[in-house]
Design a protein around this nucleic acid. Sequence first.
DNA 1: CAAGTAATCAATCATTAGTTTAAATACTTG
DNA 2: CAAGTATTTAAACTAATGATTGATTACTTG
Lengths: 221, 221
Amino acid sequence: MDSRAFKDQIYEQFGRLGKSLASPKRLEMLDVLCQGPRTVESLAVATSQTLANASQHLKVLRAARLVEAEKQGLHVTYRLAGTEVCDFFLAFRHLAESRLAEIERTTRLFLDGKNVLEAVDQATLLKRVRSGEALVLDVRPEQEYRNGHIPGALSVPLAELEQRLAELPRDRQVVAYCRGPYCVMAVEAVEILRRHGHKAARLEIGVPDWRALGLPLESQP
Amino acid sequence: MDSRAFKDQIYEQFGRLGKSLASPKRLEMLDVLCQGPRTVESLAVATSQTLANASQHLKVLRAARLVEAEKQGLHVTYRLAGTEVCDFFLAFRHLAESRLAEIERTTRLFLDGKNVLEAVDQATLLKRVRSGEALVLDVRPEQEYRNGHIPGALSVPLAELEQRLAELPRDRQVVAYCRGPYCVMAVEAVEILRRHGHKAARLEIGVPDWRALGLPLESQP
DNA sequence: CAAGTAATCAATCATTAGTTTAAATACTTG
DNA sequence: CAAGTATTTAAACTAATGATTGATTACTTG
């Protein structure tokens, strides 16, 4: 084997990993999987695609060893192949954010349409969340909350929020979070809360970012 | 803009970054660019492709804002768009190495063919290099040495090595390094050195890894 | 074991990406 | 400003990818 053939084989392998990151849908699936294991169908629904497509994308991710599958009876549960994969995804996202101005522009445009622009910046918000000064609200589906959540957070999945408004204080700030900066559940939660006279704000980061910051998580309420 | 459209736009942008990492040749070019700025032609030669292809790949990398171009007279010099890009490339490489067993297998197969298998492991080798116990040899082209090298290293580009063997001690271990684990220059250097009766070993890591370890670099000899 | 459900596979099609070759552009230097 | 060099662009072709649809497999449950 000459050195060119060696290099070609090596970078070919690197390319396999790169190719698996080349599809928007696959990246969205990785983002969702950072919240915890999921079945194929639930991933398909979460990422708005057909079951067959989701299955095909998962096959690609599995070939790159980014995810693992486990069959439990009728369902196949996919999970990230390790916490390094989640950490890498966050690094990838940060690089994209730092390099592609379009991402910030799109986000701003979206948030301008909604009425959720913050009065306080993320850093002080994060401080309030950490100190317990604000009530922290986890609006993700309950299963994801159970997989791990910000300590002291109350679980009220977005779908149940309107029915359970009475559980939330009106005198204290409510800080809602969800899967991360590009998950819109917390945005919608803040809209609902403000419409009903609550002092609400959105924490942009999600549990994976929280953990990557080295902050502790809670697993059971 | 509804939330699906928002997500589609966001992950579309992430996909742009992912797509730029989906080609073996582009990854190899990024690897080379981690050593410092280079012209299109020199990149084309280093990665064994035509000028036109190299130019097209660089266009893709530039569209993803991973590299920047600067025209100096007749030559266009490309460089990484920031040290984050190099750090990210290393993270990408580590993930690939940890997930794809084929990479290690290919590397081992290649090294088995050459006679450079180590008697000592990388960790103790690194210790000897750091302590100055061994003579450290930088066999990359001189320009890359000037961009930054391991403190105390001697620059003898691979092409000049056979002529300059007299400069090297025979009683002390010579540790050669090059661009990184998949650059074969240090492997070839060790072959030459051993053939001439020197005690030689190869340090797998390159300057980018060295810097990422938080170790200091030297810029001028 | 038949019916039903979750997931995968296979075939097709439209789109995109990569390579090659040749032509065009941009700049320098005599 | 003509000749030469470095780079980019364009056109043509081939290969690969992703979405869609329908069929198939694997498993559970009545």
